[in-house]
């Protein structure tokens, strides 16, 4: 289960070593924008040592490497892959070729380190107009891709529009990514809400992203994690209804009925599929 993803600057020991106690389902160790060019070497070695030292068992570990148009990305992977992060996030992914380039390089390192093939997954960060246009190709480029992620700050600069709290300027891109990801059968994550002090704003933004079909949302602040987790978790009413649906289906099967109704409404395949998803989420959040 991955509802929330929290960015942690890659050269900050105090934040990195406590990253897994902040409530996020995933933590993203950032070697890209949060690290100045002069400190790329330092952050890379620091993150490697912390991955070697800590298990970070309570959450998933993602490392955002530098983009493939820099001199840094292969050095990042050389240091990080042997310590088995769950996922790598390549930024500024513009095409399926960018995905395959990173995937092939990870593959050679996995083989060299005796790791299981394709054990490290990818979550390409899409944050350019070209990336949005190629979203489905990116999402389906390689079996290593487990999710895609929208980055609205760079995207709005590329679109030459102002980034707003309402997000009208990224609505098309959000919807395009959701459709692309679902068509490719991978997860899809929404851009961070950047006003750290706007508690109501993050709740509205996360709920809107959930309504659009996103799997979860990233954050640059631990303050936003609770609101994101809440927005992307089923409500108690959702859980109750999901169990009623599954009970009704089981009862109908026992009685040999082909058509099932609940609360006066017919239960069809999409209703059952949604109920199963809610129960899976319930198990992931609250245990079996």
């Amino acid at each position: 289960m991955r509802r929330s993803m929290l960015f942690i600057p890659g050269n900050s020991p105090s934040l990195l070593m406590n990253a897994d106690v902040l409530g996020a389902d995933s933590i993203i160790f950032d070697l890209e924008d949060a690290v100045s060019p002069a400190e790329k070497d330092s952050a890379r070695i620091l993150v490697r040592n912390l991955l070697r030292r800590f298990d970070y068992d309570s959450c998933e570990v993602i490392v955002r490497i530098n983009s493939v148009d820099t001199e840094f990305w292969t050095k990042d992977l050389d240091e990080i892959i042997p310590f088995h992060p769950d996922m790598i996030m390549p930024p500024k992914t513009n095409s399926e070729d960018d995905v395959r380039l990173v995937s092939q390089y990870i593959g050679t390192l996995e083989e060299k380190c005796g790791m299981k093939k394709n054990s490290v997954k990818l979550i390409p960060l899409i944050e350019t107009a070209m990336g949005v246009e190629n979203a489905y190709r990116i999402a389906s480029a390689d079996e290593r891709v487990a999710a895609i992620f929208l980055g609205a700050e760079d995207l709005s600069a590329d679109l030459r529009c102002k980034r707003t709290k309402e997000g009208t300027e990224i609505l098309y891109s959000r919807q395009r990514l959701v459709v692309a990801a679902r068509a490719a059968c991978v997860d899809v994550y929404d851009t961070p809400f950047t006003d750290v002090n706007d508690d109501e704003g993050i709740r509205k933004d996360a709920s809107f992203a959930k309504a659009l079909g996103f799997t979860g949302k990233a954050s640059i602040s631990p303050r936003h994690i609770d609101a994101i987790n809440e927005a992307f978790s089923p409500t108690q009413a959702d859980i109750k209804y999901a169990h009623e649906v599954m009970n009704a289906i089981e009862q109908a099967a026992l009685e040999g009925k082909g058509v099932v109704a609940l609360r006066g409404k017919m239960i069809d395949a999409p209703v059952v599929a949604r109920a199963r998803q809610v129960i899976e989420m319930e198990k992931a959040i609250y245990g079996a």
């Binding site: 020991p13 070593m17 330092s42 070695i45 040592n49 912390l50 070697r52 030292r53």
Partner: peptide, 12 residues
């Protein structure tokens, strides 16, 4: 700092 942090800084 933790030992692994000191070692990272020395290596760098």
């Amino acid at each position: 700092a933790l030992d692994c942090v000191i070692q990272a800084r020395v290596e760098t």
